[in-house]
């Protein structure tokens, strides 16, 4: 219920933001922002509601994980609003949140089977929080990267119009990348370590080269490479922005694609399969 309302709010705000960019001449989209806040509040309520229903951290099912992911992205977006009320970021964050929520809603939130005991562990909130935090940071970083690429092109091609004016400066966007990269990387690392520790306590082995494990390691190496290039070789600006965007797709594949297409013991999709009523 709350979840559906928040999806609608996110969709509406996405439409408002995009329409604002295309039509309006202003620099801050107040209506879009208000709807996003409304969506965020109902979304938070929906997560708390799930907590209450399940009696444990609502993080175990793909539905909950996607919802939490969208929540993380919106939380970072809203935090950034205090710093810069840029409508372009809203025009990316709101649709992405809406899409994540829609993906989540393809999974049913009526849990078909009792949650397996493995997931009833205190490792759950620790591991999932780190992983989601890392993913959210990388997602917003990719959005800022896209804004960088756009602004850079406009300046290079000397198209000094409305978009140029409402986009933040290259310096601002690059600074965001520089600050977000180590933070996201830190969370990703903790996510993988906590996952390994949990695996050891639950399945008896730290690392089994399960598809999820393999792909998160690939993601980790990709971001480790980015951190290294950025801080040791001074890769910045356009290159850093492009890498941030590429990294996002890798993150999305590891997070969603692996569970759906590659399976493995980290895939908990079954939890959400709707049981046909007898």
């Amino acid at each position: 219920m709350f979840f559906k309302v928040s999806v609608i709010f996110y969709l509406i705000s996405a439409i408002i933001y995009v329409a604002f960019l295309l039509r309006s001449k202003g620099t801050t989209c107040v209506s879009g922002f208000c709807v996003v806040v409304a969506g965020f509040i109902t979304h938070t309520t929906s997560i708390l509601h799930q907590f209450w229903i399940q009696g444990f951290f609502p993080m175990a099912t793909p539905f909950d994980a996607m919802s939490l992911f969208a929540w993380g992205v919106m939380a970072i977006f809203l935090a950034l609003q205090f710093w810069d009320r840029n409508p372009v970021l809203g025009a990316m964050a709101a649709p992405i949140a809406a899409v994540l929520m829609l993906i989540a809603s393809t999974f049913s939130y009526q849990i078909s089977q009792p949650i397996i005991p493995v997931l009833r562990s205190w490792w759950l909130p620790i591991h999932v929080s780190f992983a989601i935090a890392g993913n959210s940071v990388f997602t917003v970083m990719a959005m800022s990267g896209a804004m960088y690429i756009l602004q850079e092109r406009l300046i290079k091609r000397k198209q000094i119009g409305r978009f140029h004016k409402i986009l933040p400066s290259l310096q601002t966007l690059d600074t965001f990348n520089r600050r977000a990269l180590p933070i996201g990387f830190f969370f990703l690392t903790l996510g993988i370590i906590s996952g390994a520790l949990w695996a050891s306590s639950a399945w008896g082995s730290y690392w089994t080269w399960d598809p999820k494990e393999t792909w998160s390691l690939i993601t980790w190496f990709a971001y480790a490479g980015m951190v290294h290039q950025r801080f040791a070789f001074g890769w910045r600006g356009k290159k850093a922005a492009l890498l941030a965007i590429a990294g996002f797709f890798l993150v999305m594949f590891t997070f969603v694609g692996v569970s759906l297409f590659l399976g493995g013991h980290h895939s908990f999709v079954d939890l959400c399969r709707e049981t046909v009523p007898a």
């Binding site: 602004q151 300046i155 986009l167 400066s169 290259l170 310096q171 601002t172 600074t175």
Partner: peptide
């Protein structure tokens, strides 16, 4: 203004 859009403050 352009300088500010490229270099920030």
């Amino acid at each position: 203004e352009l300088a500010k859009k490229i270099l920030g403050e």
